[in-house]
Design a protein around this nucleic acid. Structure first.
Lengths: 147, 147
DNA sequence: TATTGTTATACTCTATAACTATA
DNA sequence: TATAGTTATAGAGTATAACAATA
């Protein structure tokens, strides 16, 4: 009977990563959910709220609340959609863009701390192993979601 | 300038694992926080609420709420502490123990799906790589927490 | 008729602070 | 004086359902 050696490590990894993420977000004054929206908005470019809801896999109502908060703190801006008068376009403000840039810099420095001093070939191998596991995990989640 | 190749993968892993966990918890009718308490309680054996609060790194008030819910659904039971009349001892009921057993079985089967058909030496290598990363992550989180 | 976003409502997780009963 | 747990209060994330305006 197989002990969950790998799975346990992945769970601990998840815990630690969330703690690290929360800490780094404290630095910019954001919650994880709001930071996630900001991040996604930067990837997508200006987007309507229902597009954000799809991207974040979250209800439209939830997006309303997150955008309310982010707009209230000056990270994003709502403006009317040019051709669809039902919709609103959400855009990063300057402050929002600077914040995303800071988050990106934080990731780069986290990456550096993680791989520093490790042989490049070893990193390559680890990444290949992770990719295999990621592929299977995606499968597991999708299989469970569809039927 | 180093791209966060590794870090990005770890983040995706975290997302997928949370989705998989939520799905598997739906199967037993629990939320992640309640399942976590149940899991920890099984590890610790019968424990007072403040011990649980320490173990889960969560406020005592939070534990009160989680135990309220779990007791209401018949997963755990509160009983008076034998020697300290301020304290309550929380114990898994039969239903609680069966639920934890189911969660353990789910982990084992997830492990199997993840490693099935992969060469044992390759798994070993992946686990060694993960352990290195885990060690560094623990450091990063601790360093940030202490000063 | 279908879609976009909002209001209304509700549940869960989480925290701090004040309080009670005990140590 | 300190500790174990609760009540009180509050904020954040999330969801569904009903509704308005627009497509």
């Amino acid at each position: 009977m197989p002990e969950p050696y790998l799975f346990d490590r992945l769970l601990e990894l998840t815990l630690l990563l969330q703690q690290d993420l929360a800490r780094s977000l404290d630095g910019v004054g954001l919650t994880p959910a709001r930071a996630h929206l900001l991040w996604e908005l930067d990837q997508l470019g200006p987007a309507s709220q229902h597009v954000l809801a799809k991207a974040l896999q979250v209800s439209p109502r939830n997006v309303t609340g997150l955008v309310d908060a982010l707009e209230g703190h000056g990270y994003v801006q709502r403006s009317p959609h040019p051709s669809d008068r039902r919709a609103l376009v959400v855009t990063l403000t300057d402050k929002g863009e600077q914040t995303v840039a800071q988050m990106q810099a934080d990731r780069v420095s986290a990456e550096r701390e993680l791989v520093e001093g490790i042989d490049a070939a070893e990193i390559e191998q680890l990444i290949r192993g992770l990719d295999t596991v990621l592929g299977r995990l995606r499968h597991m989640v999708e299989d469970a979601a569809s039927p």
